[in-house]
Design a protein around this nucleic acid. Structure first.
Length: 546
DNA sequence: AAAAAAC
């Protein structure tokens, strides 16, 4: 079997590898390093978790160890789709270049230009960047890419997903034709194929087996619930999530909890925190320094539960995660593989729980088709019993869907029923929810404006300065409307009884009539229920969004 | 129904 010492790596690099405790290269490393060292272009088709990063950092450090960087002319360039990935690659360079004098700069958004500029001016051997920030530097004339000898594109298929391909093409064109290109992608979509045909020259193609989705090291479980009312789904899911985490007990040393939406990431994180869990959110709307801090805490073990958007689904190297939870089933089946692949790594055992609701049926079908297996069904943990609270108090619920609920629902009832999987043999558990998540209960604007409101945000503060007649319109468009009011609205007033939540701007009279006339619907998922909501909400939407 | 990335 090949050892690192068999590869023609620089002695300083070999020493660093030994320091890190590695002896044997992974398949992608064994395949990509030799041609890279010969100066050939490399097309690596590999997922994360295969040792891909080292397969380009090791040869790069070796090849760059001779020669020196000139001011503003980096000698190599690594492009990554997300800031976290870029930071991770940078750490990888620190690890493997520690016995060399190579310098590097990390160019990512969300941090100030000053430090980055300084490094570039001084001259760096390796530039690691996200495309946006790199082009920003370039356009400000701070950066010349004509000295780039080696260019790496990491996670190209994700770049494609994120719409970075035009940027990538542009950057390719700014670098010399003679550069060496190392190009990595998990899949070879037609667009990726086109790029490689255009910018790679007779590449050595190394393909390693797709990360096993059915990896024996990952125990997968799917717990399906059917909340008696669709709008209680989120709350039921949060409760179930807590129940699972509690049931797993100490076996769950740390976990990533994936949500499909950033707002849900925030809500779930907050909910877990108020229930005493050591939890923190991470997604792209959070401040970069916070993102970094959170991730560091998660890596060093001081944070137990990381609630994440798909920013953390791929590529992030977080060793030793015992559990992955899909609070939402991912809408892209591929992401299921990436998400659960965060656990069970490096031969360790891992557990991946997914929570399914009838609304996710089509995602589930797509996932099972992709992984070519049925995700083993499991029952909710013992102690997660049916409560009839929702039936007793059918009007008490919070609408977790915030922004969603204000757009007219597509009449999807029919389609949903059709697509529901034929699992009638296994009666899904009907879940009802206690009213204990009061911090998340939605408080209508009408109610809040009566008196004190907790922790006003600036958007709120601005409104307070210039009171206006209801309904309050967002002042300047989408940002404010999109997130702020909803996040705020998830606070309850202290002490007061949980208020029925609709959207933010439900006038009082509507609210009252809603409360008293809302029919008690025992039957789950009926059209009748949906139309009730739609009728109440459409007028709200008219007034608040035009 | 989304997320991510530039200011």
């Amino acid at each position: 079997m090949t050892k690192f010492t068999d590869l023609k790596l620089d002695p300083a690099v070999l020493r660093a590898i030994a320091d890190a405790g590695y002896e044997t290269p992974t398949p992608i490393q064994a395949g990509a390093i030799p041609p890279a060292l010969e100066g050939k272009d490399v097309l690596g088709i590999a997922q994360t978790g295969t040792g891909k990063t080292a397969s380009f950092t090791l040869p790069m450090v070796t090849m760059l160890s001779k020669g020196r960087a000139r001011a503003r002319m980096p000698r190599s360039l690594v492009l990554c789709p997300t800031r976290e990935l870029a930071a991770q690659v940078a750490e990888n360079f620190d690890t493997y270049a520690k016995h060399t004098k190579l310098t590097k700069a990390l160019l990512i958004g969300g941090v100030s230009f000053g430090e980055q500029d300084k490094l570039i001016d001084r001259g760096v051997d390796v530039l690691i960047a996200t495309p946006g920030r790199l082009l920003d530097h370039f356009e400000r004339g701070k950066l010349l890419l004509t000295g780039v000898q080696i260019m790496v594109v990491d996670e190209a298929d994700r770049m494609l997903d994120m719409g970075f391909i035009p940027d990538i093409e542009r950057i390719f064109q700014l670098t010399p034709f003679t550069r060496q290109t190392l190009f990595f992608s998990a899949t070879m979509a037609p667009e990726i194929e086109r790029i490689t045909n255009t910018f790679l020259h007779a590449p050595a193609r190394i393909e390693v087996a797709r990360q096993a989705t059915t990896s024996e090291t990952i125990t997968q479980k799917l717990i399906q619930i059917t909340p008696p009312r669709r709008d209680q789904s989120a709350k039921a899911k949060r409760e179930l999530l807590r129940a699972i985490i509690k049931a797993e007990g100490e076996a769950c040393t740390n976990a990533i909890i994936f949500c499909n939406r950033k707002t849900d990431v925030d809500i779930v994180a907050k909910s877990l925190k108020t229930h005493g869990f050591n939890a923190a959110p991470i997604h792209g709307d959070l401040d970069q320094s916070l993102r970094t801090k959170t991730l560091d805490a998660f890596r060093d073990g001081s944070l137990r539960l990381l609630i994440a958007s798909d920013v953390a689904a791929r590529g992030l190297d977080i060793p030793a995660v015992s559990h992955v939870f899909n609070y939402d089933l991912p809408s892209h089946a591929e992401d299921y593989v990436h998400r659960i692949g965060r656990t069970g790594r490096a031969g360790r055992l891992g557990t991946a729980y997914s929570i399914g609701t009838p609304a996710d049926a089509k995602y589930l079908a797509a996932i099972e088709a992709l992984v070519k297996q049925e995700i083993p069904r499991a029952d909710p943990p013992e102690g997660f019993t049916l409560s009839d609270a929702a039936h007793r108090e059918p009007r008490k619920y919070d609408d977790d869907k915030g922004p969603r609920s204000r757009s007219p629902r597509s009449r999807s009832g029919r389609g949903r029923d059709e697509k529901r999987p034929p699992r009638e043999d296994r009666a899904p558990v009907i879940v009802a929810v206690e009213e204990d998540d009061s911090h998340i209960v939605e408080v209508p604007e009408a109610k809040r404006s009566e008196g004190r409101r907790p922790e006003p945000r600036h958007s709120e503060a601005r409104r307070a300065e210039s009171p206006r007649p209801e309904p309050i319109r967002p002042e300047s468009g989408r940002d404010e409307r999109r997130s702020e009011p909803y996040r705020d609205s998830r606070r309850s007033r202290d002490g007061g009884p949980a208020v029925v939540g609709m959207g933010d701007h439900v006038p009082d009279f509507l609210l009252r009539s809603f409360r008293t006339t809302k029919p008690v619907i025992e039957d789950k998922d009926t059209e009748a229920e949906e139309s009730t909501e739609a009728e109440v909400q459409n007028p709200v939407e008219e007034t608040s969004e035009n």
